[in-house]
């Protein structure tokens, strides 16, 4: 039973992630903030379920399937943390380039901290699930290119309800870049750093 279920883990996680996005869009009429809270709860719930799966699979190992992201070949060669973090900062700044030319939003710095902290949490959770779980799962099952492309596609799809079809190419490209960063550094933290910096820029320029 475990052996039959394990190869479908990436697909199941993909479906679960898409369902969280649908749930978020259904919550939007209540309010964007309430929808964001629901999204955070759903992502955290996914992590809990994934951990349970880890412990089940570690008791019943499948011969061809790594049970955790860290055991997949690409993650064995992690770059040093500081180097990865610097790469994350660099990627985040590059992603901000298109908006840096816009006029400053004028939002006061005093209001930034609570919003900025919440962004850290949401972006990090998203990266942990997408780049820390989904990408390695697809990489293990279908290869690194499939891992990159599918996790970027899911990244774009979960933003569809909030930003519409027009934003899909940009979100897919950003997903590809963050997936690439994950594969190159072997770490999730640089992706989270880049994601957070790109999000923070919206406060100052949009």
């Amino acid at each position: 039973m475990i052996a039959a279920a394990a190869p479908r883990r990436a697909a199941a996680l993909t479906v679960a992630l898409l369902l969280t996005a649908i749930m978020r869009s259904l919550l939007l009429p209540i309010g964007e903030l309430a929808a964001a809270v629901g999204f955070v709860i759903a992502l955290a719930g996914l992590l809990v379920v994934e951990r349970r799966m880890d412990s089940v699979l570690s008791r019943h190992p499948h011969p061809t399937l790594p049970t955790r992201g860290r055991e997949i070949g690409q993650q064995r060669s992690e770059t040093p943390f500081w180097l990865g973090a610097a790469a994350g900062v660099g990627v985040g700044l590059v992603l901000l380039l298109p908006v840096m030319g816009a006029a400053a939003s004028g939002r006061p710095l005093s209001g930034f901290w609570g919003w900025g902290a919440a962004i850290v949490v949401i972006a990090t959770l998203e990266e942990v699930v997408l780049r820390g779980r989904l990408q390695p799962a697809w990489t293990a099952e279908a290869g690194p290119v499939a891992g990159l492309v599918l996790s970027a596609a899911v990244f774009a799809l979960i933003h569809l309800p909030r930003y519409g079809l027009g934003a899909m190419p940009l979100d897919f490209a950003v997903g590809l870049a963050l997936g690439g960063l994950r594969a190159v550094t072997g770490r999730v933290a640089p992706c989270a750093i880049a994601h957070v910096i790109a999000d923070w820029g919206a406060w100052f320029w949009l």
Binding site: A36, R107, I122, A123, Y163, D199
Partner: peptide, 27 residues
């Protein structure tokens, strides 16, 4: 993927560019 993704993200014509790649509504 990193190079292609970054190039496309930077060079995409602005238009329906989202406020955030994800996250909270901006005040």
């Amino acid at each position: 993927a990193l190079v292609i993704g970054l190039a496309v993200a930077v060079l995409l014509p602005s238009g329906p560019r989202p406020a955030l790649f994800d996250g909270l509504p901006l005040p």
